[in-house]
Nucleic acid binder design. Structure first.
Length: 502
RNA sequence: GGGCCUCUAGCUCAAUGGCAGAGCUGCGGACUUUUAAUCCGUAGGUUCUCGGUUCGAGUCCGAGGGGGCCCA
C-alpha cells in the first residue's frame, strides 16, 4: 500500500468509489451500535456439516431445524422482498442464505441491502430449507456482519492476472479453488514424506539456517550481518554438513525439511528460497537411498491422488508407478553424441563435441563440468519418464564417495522427472583425509574467484575425524516435488514466492 | 546478461496519431426463488513514471520501473 493510499484512509477522499462506500458502511454499522468486526458468532454447524446433515432435503422442503452458521459472502442477488447470498467456508464448501421479508422483517432486509457486500464475513441464524429450485439454504431469522470487507473482490468469472495472483495470494485463495487445493496438496505431500520417514525410523532435526560458513552445495549464498558478534553470517545453501554432523553423533537415520537460500536467478523453475528435504542413512549406498527416494515420491503421489499415476494441471496423466529407468551420465551422453565419451575423455575432445552441437563453453569449466553441460544440453530434454542418471564426475561432486569401480566418477545419481531435476542422491564420502583434500581444492577454486565454490569447513572435518559410518544421502526440492506431482509452475507451488516490491 | 512481448476503471479487456470505451463489479430504482438473473437509470480514469516529437499522444520516439516468454 502506498503512503498516499494510507493517508487517504483517514478521510476516504481519494479512494476509489467502491472502497469509499464500504468504509461508509463500516462507519454506519458503528454509528448504529453494531460491531463490524465481531468477536465471534455462536455457530452451531459449519457449512460442510449442514451439507452433510440436510443433503437429502427435497426441493422446496423445510427441515424444521434452526441452525446458526458462518461464511464469507461470495455472491448476492436481490429479488424485491427476497434476497439471496451464497456463503463459502474456508474448506471451499458453499451454502445459500435466503432473506425473506416475511421471515426476517422489513427492517433487517433493508439493512442487508444497505450494508452487506460480497466479501463480507457474516453469521446467520435460521431454518434449513430447500429453495424451489432445490438449492439447500438457510432461511434467515437474523444475520450479523462479522467481518466487513473494505475492498471489493475481483470478478469471480474472469481469471486473475498471474501477477495479481502471486502478489495478492490472499485474493487468489479467495477466488480460485485450485489455489486452495495446491495449499492442501502441499501439506499432504509434506505430511506424507514425514510419515514415511518416521516409519523408516528417520529422526527429524532442525539445523542452522544462519551459518558462519556456507557449505553442502555449490551456490552463491545470501549474506547478512550479526550485530552482537559483529560478524557476517550466511543464509544456508544446504543443511548437508550439519546433518552429517548428526550422523557422526549417532543419529544414524536423520532428515530435515526446511528452507534453503541461494542468491541466484529467479525463473519459472528456480526460487531464491526453496524448501528441501535432505535425508541421510547409515549403512546404505546410493542405490539404497535411491530406492527410498522412489518410495517417498510414490507415497506422496498416493497421498494426493490415491494413485501413483498423477493428473497434471493440463489434464494429462503421468505415471510415477513401478520401476524407474536407470541410465549413466556418460553412457547416455555417448549414445546422444554417437561417440564414446568417458570420464577420461580429454578436455579438448569434449570442447570439439560442444562446438559440434552448438554448446558455448565457459573457460572456467573443467572436463567433468563440461561433460555434465553436454549431458544437460543433449539428453535431459528427452527424459520424460522418471529416470535415475547415475555416476557423475568427481570434479563436480566434492562431498561424494569415489565410484567403487571407475576412478574419476562418484556414486551419485540425479533423478529426472518430466525433464527437470527433482532429487539427487549419493554414497557419501566418509574419509576425512580425502574430504579435506576435496575441500582444499574447492577453496583454491574460490580463491581464483569462483564464488560458488565451497571453503574448508574445519569443524566439519573435525567431526568427520571422529569417524562417520558408511552413509548414503539424498536431497529433494519440495517445491519441485509439487511441480512433478501437479504440473504447476514454481510460483504456484510456493504460497508467497518472492516478487520485486511494487 | 541478450532478444521479444506487455502495463488503460475495483476485475478482465477494447480504442487508424483526432471526444478514453465495453462487460462484470459498484451506486439508485423495479421484481418473494435467484444461481455469471432480467429490466430501467447512473457513477467510476495520474492510460506505470519522466522527458521528447506533434496543432493534437493511451497510441510515435528516448530513458526508467513492474510483469511475462524465449535464449545463453
Amino acid at each position: 500500500m502506498t503512503e498516499h493510499e494510507q493517508d487517504s484512509t483517514e478521510t476516504g477522499d481519494d479512494l476509489p468509489e467502491q472502497m469509499k462506500i464500504r468504509r461508509e458502511k463500516r462507519a454506519a454499522l458503528l454509528a448504529e451500535g453494531k460491531e463490524p468486526y465481531a468477536l465471534g458468532y455462536p455457530r452451531t454447524h459449519s457449512l460442510a456439516e449442514l451439507r452433510g446433515l440436510f443433503g437429502g432435503l427435497a426441493d422446496g422442503e423445510s427441515s424444521g431445524v434452526t441452525v446458526s452458521t458462518t461464511g464469507r459472502v461470495i455472491f448476492v442477488r436481490l429479488a424485491g422482498k427476497l434476497a439471496f447470498a451464497r456463503l463459502r467456508d474456508g474448506d471451499g464448501t458453499e451454502f445459500q442464505v435466503m432473506l425473506s421479508q416475511g421471515k426476517v422483517g422489513e427492517e433487517a432486509l433493508a439493512e442487508w441491502k444497505r450494508l452487506a457486500d460480497i466479501g463480507d464475513h457474516i453469521g446467520v441464524t435460521g431454518e434449513v430449507v430447500s429453495s424451489k429450485r432445490g438449492e439447500l439454504s438457510v432461511m434467515a431469522d437474523s444475520f450479523q456482519i462479522t467481518g466487513k470487507a473494505l475492498r471489493p473482490l475481483p470478478v469471480a468469472h474472469k481469471a486473475l492476472a498471474e501477477e495479481t495472483r502471486v502478489r495478492q495470494r490472499y485474493v487468489d485463495l479467495i477466488v480460485r479453488p485450485e489455489a486452495r487445493d495446491t495449499v492442501r496438496n502441499r501439506a499432504r505431500v509434506v505430511k506424507s514424506l514425514r510419515d514415511q520417514l518416521d516409519a523408516e525410523s528417520f529422526i527429524e532435526v532442525e539445523t542452522p539456517m544462519m551459518q558462519v560458513q556456507p557449505g553442502g552445495a555449490t551456490a552463491r549464498p545470501f549474506v547478512t550481518h550479526m550485530n552482537a558478534y559483529d560478524i557476517d553470517l550466511y543464509l544456508r545453501i544446504a543443511p548437508e554438513l550439519y546433518l552429517k554432523r548428526c550422523v557422526v553423533g549417532g543419529i544414524d537415520r536423520v532428515f530435515e525439511i526446511n528452507r534453503n537460500f541461494r542468491n541466484e536467478g529467479a525463473d519459472s523453475s528456480h526460487s531464491p528460497e526453496f524448501a528441501m528435504l535432505e535425508a541421510y542413512r547409515s549403512y546404505g549406498d546410493y542405490r539404497t537411498i535411491g530406492a527410498l527416494t522412489k518410495s517417498l515420491i510414490q507415497g506422496a503421489a498416493r497421498s494426493v491422488f490415491g494413485s501413483e499415476t498423477v493428473v497434471l494441471a493440463d489434464g494429462s496423466e503421468y505415471d510415477l508407478g513401478g520401476e524407474w529407468a536407470e541410465i549413466t551420465l556418460f553412457g547416455s551422453l555417448s549414445e546422444a553424441l554417437g561417440e564414446t565419451v568417458t570420464v577420461d575423455t580429454p578436455y579438448d575432445v569434449l570442447v570439439a563435441y560442444a562446438d559440434k552441437v552448438g554448446l558455448g563453453v565457459d573457460p572456467k569449466w573443467g572436463p567433468g563440468k563440461l561433460a555434465e553441460e553436454l549431458f544437460e544440453h543433449l539428453v535431459v530434454d528427452g527424459l520424460h519418464a522418471p529416470t535415475f542418471v547415475l555416476d557423475y564426475p568427481e570434479e563436480t561432486s566434492p562431498l561424494v564417495r569415489g565410484h567403487r569401480t571407475t576412478p574419476g566418477l562418484t556414486e551419485k545419481w540425479d533423478l529426472y522427472v518430466r525433464g527437470f531435476e527433482l532429487a539427487t542422491g549419493y554414497s557419501e564420502l566418509i574419509d576425512p583425509v580425502i574430504q579435506r583434500e576435496r575441500m582444499e581444492a574447492q577453496a583454491r577454486q574460490a580463491a581464483k574467484g569462483d564464488d560458488e565454490a565451497m571453503g574448508v569447513d574445519e569443524d566439519f572435518l573435525r567431526a568427520m575425524e571422529y569417524g562417520m559410518p558408511p552413509l548414503c544421502g539424498m536431497g529433494m526440492g519440495i517445491d519441485r516435488l509439487l511441480m512433478a506431482l501437479t504440473g504447476l509452475g514454481i510460483r504456484e507451488t510456493i504460497l508467497f514466492p518472492l516478487v520485486k516490491p511494487e
